[in-house]
C-alpha cells in the first residue's frame, strides 16, 4: 500500500520537474523583447481602455507613446495634462500643452420646443433611425433620442433625461474621450473648451435649414438672424450654413448674445443669476440642467 503512494509521489514529482524544465527552455527560446518603459507608461495611464486616444486600448497607446519622437497628435483625453505630463517625464520628453475639454450637446429640442410629428417604432438605435428618416420631429439635424451616446459613454457621464428626451452630460464625470461624439450619427455632440466653474455659452442648435423651416420644426432653433454676430464685441460668433457658432477660445462670457437671441437658442450654463432687470428674459432663454 505504502509503496503505491511512494511510487505515485515520486513519478508525479519527476513529471512536474521535467515539465518545468521544458517550460523554462521554451519560455527562453520564444521570449519576446518588450520595452520595459511600455509597462511604466501604461501604469500611469487611466486604464479605462475607452479608445478616446484613437488606439484600441491603453496598452497600445503606451506603445505608441514610447515609440513616438514627440507627443504631437498623441493625447489621452481622459488623463489630460496630468497623465500626459507624467508620461512625458517617464520618457524624458516635452509635455504637450493641453486644454481641458468637455462634451456639449448642440441641440435643445425637447418635445416642448420641438413637437413630435411621427412615432418611431423601430430598434432604439440612432444610426438606424438616422438612415431611415428625418426622425420623430421635423428637424433633420437634431437629437434622435435613441441613446447611442449613452451606450457609448464608458464613464457614466452621459444619461438621457426622460422628460426632454435629450442626453444630459455631467461635466465632472466627462473625460472628453470623444466616444459620444463618434457615436452620434448626427454629429451634434461637440468637445468644447472647459471654462472656469464649468461655465458655458454656446448655440444649442445644429439646424442648417433656413430660418423659416428651422423655426417651424423647433422653437429654439437658430434661425441665423445674425443678431448675436452684431452684438458680439470679440468676433467670437460666426454664421455658416444658416447656423451661428460661438468660438470658445474667443468668447469672454459677456453674455450679451444670450439676451439678444430671439429664439433662445444660445444657452448660458452655470452662471450666477442676472440682475433683476433682465432676470425674466434670462429665464426664458436659459434651460439649466
Amino acid at each position: 500500500m505504502s509503496s503505491t503512494i511512494i511510487i505515485t509521489v515520486v513519478s508525479l514529482s519527476l513529471l512536474a520537474f521535467m515539465s518545468a524544465v521544458i517550460l523554462y527552455f521554451i519560455a527562453q527560446k520564444f521570449k519576446v523583447f518588450e520595452d520595459p518603459r511600455i509597462d511604466e507608461v501604461q501604469a500611469v495611464l487611466p486604464a479605462a481602455n475607452c479608445g478616446g486616444c484613437g488606439f484600441a486600448g491603453c496598452r497600445n497607446f503606451a506603445e505608441a507613446l514610447v515609440k513616438a519622437e514627440n507627443f504631437d497628435g498623441l493625447l489621452c483625453p481622459v488623463g489630460g495634462a496630468v497623465v500626459m505630463g507624467q508620461a512625458a517625464k517617464l520618457l524624458g520628453k516635452e509635455a504637450p500643452v493641453i486644454e481641458p475639454k468637455v462634451a456639449v450637446l448642440i441641440c435643445n429640442g425637447s418635445p416642448e420646443f420641438r413637437p413630435h410629428t411621427s412615432k418611431y417604432d423601430g430598434v432604439p438605435d440612432c444610426r438606424i433611425a438616422n438612415t431611415l428618416y428625418i426622425g420623430e420631429t421635423d428637424c433633420s439635424y437634431g437629437c434622435l433620442g435613441n441613446n447611442d451616446c449613452e451606450r457609448a459613454c464608458t464613464f457614466d457621464a452621459l444619461h438621457m433625461d426622460p422628460l426632454t428626451g435629450l442626453p444630459v452630460i455631467t461635466d465632472d464625470k466627462c473625460t472628453s474621450c470623444g466616444n459620444c461624439v463618434k457615436a452620434c450619427p448626427r454629429h451634434i455632440i461637440e468637445l468644447r473648451k472647459k471654462a472656469r466653474k464649468d461655465r458655458k455659452i454656446y448655440v444649442a442648435c445644429s439646424n442648417c435649414d433656413k430660418g423659416g423651416p428651422a423655426r417651424r420644426a423647433c422653437k429654439v432653433a437658430c434661425i441665423a438672424c445674425s443678431k448675436c454676430v452684431n452684438v458680439c464685441e470679440f468676433n467670437a460668433i460666426t454664421i455658416e450654413n444658416n447656423l451661428a457658432y460661438i468660438d470658445a477660445s474667443k468668447c469672454t462670457f459677456c453674455r450679451k448674445c444670450v439676451t439678444e437671441c430671439p429664439t433662445g437658442s444660445i444657452l448660458e450654463i452655470n452662471f450666477p443669476p442676472r440682475k433683476p432687470k433682465v432676470e425674466a428674459e434670462a429665464e426664458n432663454a436659459t434651460i439649466n440642467p
Binding site: G122, V123, D125, R127, I128, T131
Partner: peptide, 8 residues
C-alpha cells in the same frame, strides 16, 4: 429586427 441591423 434582422433587416434593420443588416441594412445598417
Amino acid at each position: 429586427p434582422l433587416l434593420d441591423y443588416i441594412r445598417l
